[in-house]
Design a protein around this nucleic acid. Structure first.
Lengths: 194, 194
DNA sequence: AGCAAAGTAAACAAGTCTGTCTACTTTCCA
DNA sequence: TGGAAAGTAGACAGACTTGTTTACTTTGCT
């Protein structure tokens, strides 16, 4: 049986944590929905917090893979300057996620909101994820040969996070489109400067 | 005694909710810190959720007043084009808040993260607050005579929220400065177009 | 001075939570 | 085929939750 129960637990917990929140989701709910025994859960994870961190790491991997995939897929369809296409595609990917059925904000932002001591393992997992997203964005900027690509990546990440939060708190379905427009203005400003 | 106990409860609860989260903060903790009896609390508020909403409304008023005040104060010091000064001052206000001692992200974003059903009173309070901030930003744009000031205000709000989230999750103390730089690029693009 | 409103203290109900433990069963592999 | 590893079911401990209630005290107003 290897670790299929472990996977099942993470998958189930991830969905529940995302949809209802971390403290709001009890262990018993996860067990009921997954059909796994309590002892099995505590055999795989030493605590609920341990399970939360495992969920975040899986989500991190899934999300980064999805973003890379979407960028690859959506970049050719962009009508902007070709060297901006991958960044524009990134915001399109964000847009379709935000407007999908099961959008409840960013799981990492939500987790940070519930566990915001900087030394908490949950918070650390969130920090690491956000830094990986910044790195992903930075990679999409390589064609532009910017003088400070990391700074620009951070600015684009701010736009992305802002769009996610805006969509979540004000139910604004156009937030990713707004962010995309700002991103294009930003990138254009570098092109003009060069 | 009027409603001074009510005020004391809101003040105490607000601090604890902001610092430790909403579900993580128990009624008993609020009572212990405020020194108020449980019956008095339930005399003023029909439930914990009711108290949370009251805290959010007070915070909303405090925050908007603080922002308006800071803009007034910081705008004259800006070195940008004078018609951008109030927006630039807004991001400076954000920057000093983010880098102050007691920064634990945006209380409304945190609340939305814990209560994210759209019809939840807590979530509604967050939505209202964010819309008021957008309106505040829009007012600062009046000198620019933009064709779509509300859209621009939403874009600037996205930058602000992104900066707050970035500072909170990645402990990046420069996030408001990054957002400010993007905001200036955005406003410049309108100036050029005109 | 006296009464009503508001507050206190603490017990209580009834439910939730995480995590442990025991006894039994299934699964896998050699 | 047999034994170890992994899983199940469910009871249990112990702590914590929100919210109610009772009996008593303080406060403020007329």
């Amino acid at each position: 049986m290897a670790s299929t129960k472990r996977d099942l637990l993470i998958d189930t917990a991830q969905g529940l944590f995302y949809q209802h929140g971390f403290r709001a989701t009890g262990i018993d709910t996860i067990l009921a929905e997954s059909g796994v025994a309590k002892k099995t859960l505590y055999n795989h994870f030493k605590s609920k917090e341990d399970l939360i961190v495992a969920c975040l790491y899986r989500r991190d991997q899934q999300l980064l893979a999805l973003l890379e995939n979407s960028i690859e897929h959506l970049a050719p369809q962009q009508k902007c300057q070709p060297q901006f296409a991958r960044i524009m595609a990134f915001f399109d990917a964000l847009d379709s996620w935000i407007n999908s059925d099961n959008f409840f904000g960013c799981m990492f932002i939500n987790a940070s909101a519930e566990y915001h001591q900087a030394d908490n393992p949950v918070h650390i997992a969130c920090t690491e994820h956000k830094n990986l997203v910044i790195k992903l964005i930075e990679q999409q900027l390589s064609e532009l040969a910017l003088t400070q690509p990391l700074e620009t990546a951070k600015q684009l990440a701010i736009l992305a996070d802002g769009a996610i939060v805006g969509a979540h708190t004000t139910n604004d379905s156009a937030s990713a489109k707004h962010a995309k427009a700002v991103a294009e203005v930003l990138l254009n400003s570098f092109a003009q400067a060069a």
